[in-house]
Computed example of a mutant assay.
Amino acid sequence: MKRNRKTAAVTGSVAALLALVTACGGGGQVGGGDEGGDQAAPGNKKLVLIPGTQAEPFYISMQCGAEAEAGKLGYTLETQAPQKFDAALQTEKVNALGSAPPAGLLIAPTDDQAMIAPIQQVKNGGTKVVEVDTSLKDKNVAVSSISSDNAEGGKLAAQTLAKLVGDKPGSVLVLDTIAGTSTTNARAKGFEDELKNYPNLKSVGAQFTQNEPDQAASKVTAALSSTPDLIGIFATNLNTGEGAATGLRNAGKIGQVNLVGFDASPSEVEGLRKGEYQGLIAQDPASIGQQGVQQAVAALEGKPVQRDITAGLHSITKDTMDANAQYFYKQQC
């Protein structure tokens, strides 16, 4: 009898445990093979996008694509952008999600190492994480990562510059943003690696601008003084490009030094039309946002998730800009 009572007790405990698991949604399917955290609470249709910074046309275009796709799939998307491209400011936005965790988080990490811990904390709460544009060094945090092939983008920029310059010899400056920013660092490296294939062009190295246009302008002013044969500049994003154009304008060197920028913001497109830029490497941020939502929803609904997705890149010059207008970035949705 004692043994029978024990067996009955164990059986009852198992039944109670199964009931508890069922009540908590444990019978649901975990999306995309992501083993960290549980599924979002039933009925949670909220997605949050935390881009690198606010008011940049690249991120606005990404937001537009993400919002449209979320609505199509029956979800809502809220954008919470830090004032500057800064890991501490972005961490504040991520930490604030703890009080009301979204079902899914789309985020462009501003530092591939410093953002791991705060994003992991959100994941631990059951939120599905998708990286858009930039990524973390730790590949186990996000269920999916959508970005341009930034090294390939840098390579394309070098090819574009070489075509613009022809056989003329000269030195080339690379303006990067912040050390630890995965996207721009990859662009700079891809550019310098490809530049080695053109013996008439010599790199004077990459300089960091902290993503501030005024610092980019100062770097260009200094380079023009120290490097008389400066023939080209590669600016790895919008802010460095705008700063580089300002530096060339102030020195009266517009058109004399070939400026190839990354992205296609309204100001960069206008600069290309006016001859301040000679080339732009455009991404497709709306597609990145759209696909980011698709992967987050797939993970939430237990459907297959693609871990890494590469978005398209396009080299645009003044001669080809009208044919590529669909890749110009937006200032509002």
Rank of each mutant, 00 (worst) to 15 (best):
M1C: 14
V10F: 08
T11D: 07
T11F: 14
T11G: 15
T11M: 14
G12F: 10
T22E: 09
T22D: 13
G27L: 14
G31H: 13
Q39F: 09
A40H: 09
L49Y: 05
P51N: 08
P57G: 06
C64S: 13
C64T: 13
F85D: 06
L89R: 04
E92V: 15
K93G: 04
A96E: 05
A103F: 07
Q113Y: 10
M115W: 01
Q121S: 06
G126F: 07
T127I: 07
D133T: 00
L136F: 02
K139F: 10
V141A: 01
G153F: 04
L156Q: 12
A158V: 04
T160V: 00
K163G: 07
D167E: 12
I178A: 04
T184A: 06
F191D: 02
L195T: 05
K196Y: 12
K196Q: 14
N200Y: 02
F208D: 04
F208Y: 10
P213S: 03
D214E: 12
Q215Y: 10
P228V: 01
D229V: 11
L230I: 08
I233A: 05
A235F: 10
G241D: 09
A244T: 00
G247P: 00
R249L: 06
I254C: 02
V257P: 07
V257I: 11
L259Y: 05
F262H: 00
S265F: 15
E268N: 11
D284R: 14
S287I: 05
G289D: 00
V297Q: 05
L300A: 00
R307K: 14
L313F: 06
D319V: 04
A323Q: 14
N324A: 12
Q331W: 14
Q332E: 13
